[in-house]
Nucleic acid binder design. Structure first.
Lengths: 211, 211, 211, 211
DNA sequence: AATGAATGAGCCTTCATTCAT
DNA sequence: GATGAATGAAGGCTCATTCAT
């Protein structure tokens, strides 16, 4: 345990430990002492580097998000919209299925979902908004509509919520439902299903005007 | 207000209060004192009647479970399958939008999801299975297929996950996404969207065999 | 250390200890642990009985005030106003000179004076106001004026501030200034001086209108 | 902004900051970090330059003392004694009303009063004695008496204690008592009141021998 | 049977101080 | 000489739990 480091070193160790512990235990159950212990740092370190537990939590969210989120695919305008949606869904599903940093993010997300701390509110929209816009554009092209009308928003929700199944259902339950282990191949088949299901859905909605 | 009650009375009031509080706050954040206060009971009552907080939590789960499992609508075999799906989705959405027992159950479930206590595994399947079967049958009819092949299971997941949006996204976020308050009318429009989106999806999947 | 008391017993012991400790140390330096220790109570007792340290402080103020403040003399309307003032001043000076509860009050007062906690604000006026009114009436009669004009308020301040010398100067300094120990007899002579000094002052102010 | 200063520069800045902070907050509530921050110095500076917080406190006292002892007005022997008293009181009141060094000193003094550190005993007399002598002389002339008899000492206390009201009552309370904000004009009227009140008092005491 | 007084363990935070550089 | 990273000690508060009554 080196007595004197760069300062950024210790800070980073604490942040990493915080990502782990918050993901494992949730905000309430996570103990500052535990985080510091894992980081090999003094209990007062959290206050020294981050101010308090809440600020550390927020930064842990950002860090986890950064670590787990794949960069947005550059969309080739020549690709047919159907294939753009396919690529988007596959990419999202692979992110969600990833056990590493993604697992941490998922747990953070679920905990926040179940028992909002209110600390993430602003952060959330900032993180989510850019990804959303890409999907909305794709859906608009597929539906053959302009503007942000309700039908487009509803379609976006349909797509996202299907992909999120990987997050909001426990692995065990998912495997129970499907009767087989969640292999990479299964993920791929699932993504393909969602793509086709959604393409049909979007086109059906887009064709006739929303009731 | 009888000064000396049956004992069972107090126990029940505490249990009801516990269902509320655990659902609202989660296990950790729920305070025994709060539960007792809402139940109009003494602080020592939880330990007296249930042993400790953990035991109360378990019983609250079972109680909530019992309260929320609404009876399934009897399906009229003469109704066209499309309308059966429509009815199923509208019923589910209304359940999910309901703040009452169903909401409580969902919150408990999400907490368990994020930080499993390992308690409710069995309960879960018992609750879910019967409802599932109904939906699977409807989907099979719409898709025009027999047997539990993967495509049917996938479609079921697509339908369910769309409906679950009401549960797995926070109200605030949902209203942010949609740009309007979550009124009963909006719920209805959303249910209708999911119905049409899913009908198209199911039929697309059912028609041509899985990719 | 009895395990089980009336409940009011322990509370009172803590309150008394708090009066002592707050007076000795001031709000900041007073330690809850110290108070509880002196009261023979658990550290959590302060929270249990009073909510928090601040609430205990307020109650300690009230308690100390109650213990130290002599009841208001009933004013005999037939007594000449000059003698009423004399009685008022002597009573006040004796209160201030009193070593017992008064000493505690004085220390609380001085600490609050030097470093306001802001906790006493409302309390202060409630405690002080009734006593003030009596003095104002006496001064009005002596000055031969009606109404609450500025001159009367100024005179009240002159009287009070002279009496407060006993509080706002340290014993040692006071004795140094006067060249003699602060005996009861000296207090009496001082009170008499203030009376005559003030009578002349009030009458001078009252006679010619305020510049 | 030189990156490497003389060292004495920093020391002085810390000392000045300490005077401010100790006066505002008192010894306990004053934070070393706050002092260093205001001085634009490193957190370790206090210990580096002064050893520890207590030593800094002592030096801050001495510094404040030095800064606040305004030179006495030279008394013109031809001025009538009444006007000398008037000038003395007005000067003192303006000092006391001043937010600057004098205010700092007063707050430090009151803190010491309430919870003596036993530090400033000697300082005090050195500061007070010369000013006292001037006032005693004036009073003697007005009273028409020689020698330091008790009546003169009492009168001095009466005058001083009235002036000190500005210090020993919180602004808020003072404004509450007077029903108006503490403007420079009010200070002047108050000084004039004290002058006239005291002139009458002194003459009354001086005329007939002490009761 | 049921209560409320009382507690101990533990958490987050503050803060003066230290020490390698 | 001067700094900033790091810490230990302690403080206020929370809360589930216990136990005499």
């Amino acid at each position: 345990m080196p007595y004197r480091e760069d300062g950024k070193e210790t800070r980073k160790r604490i942040l990493d430990a915080a990502c782990e512990v918050f993901a494992e235990k949730g905000y309430q159950s996570a103990k500052v002492a535990d985080i510091c212990h894992r980081a090999g740092a003094n209990i007062a370190s959290v206050n020294y580097y981050f101010g308090d537990k809440a600020a550390l939590y927020i930064e842990a969210w950002q860090e986890t998000f950064k670590k787990c989120s794949s960069p947005l695919l550059p969309v080739d305008p020549d690709t047919p919209p159907d294939d753009q949606l396919r690529a988007y869904i596959h990419s999202l599903m692979e992110d969600f299925a990833n056990e590493g940093a993604q697992g941490q993010f998922t747990r953070l997300y679920l905990t926040e979902l179940a028992h909002p701390t209110g600390l993430i509110h602003d952060l959330w929209h900032d993180l989510i908004q850019p990804k959303r816009r890409v999907l909305l554009d794709i859906i608009r092209k597929i539906a053959g509509r302009e503007g942000p009308d309700e039908a487009i928003l509803f379609c976006e929700m349909s797509v996202i919520s299907q992909c999120r199944t990987l997050l909001t259902v426990r692995r065990n339950d998912l495997e129970y439902l499907l009767g087989q282990p969640l292999s990479p191949d299964l993920i791929k088949r699932l993504a393909e299903h969602i793509t086709r299901f959604s393409l049909a859905g979007i086109k059906a909605i887009g064709g006739k005007d929303s009731a």
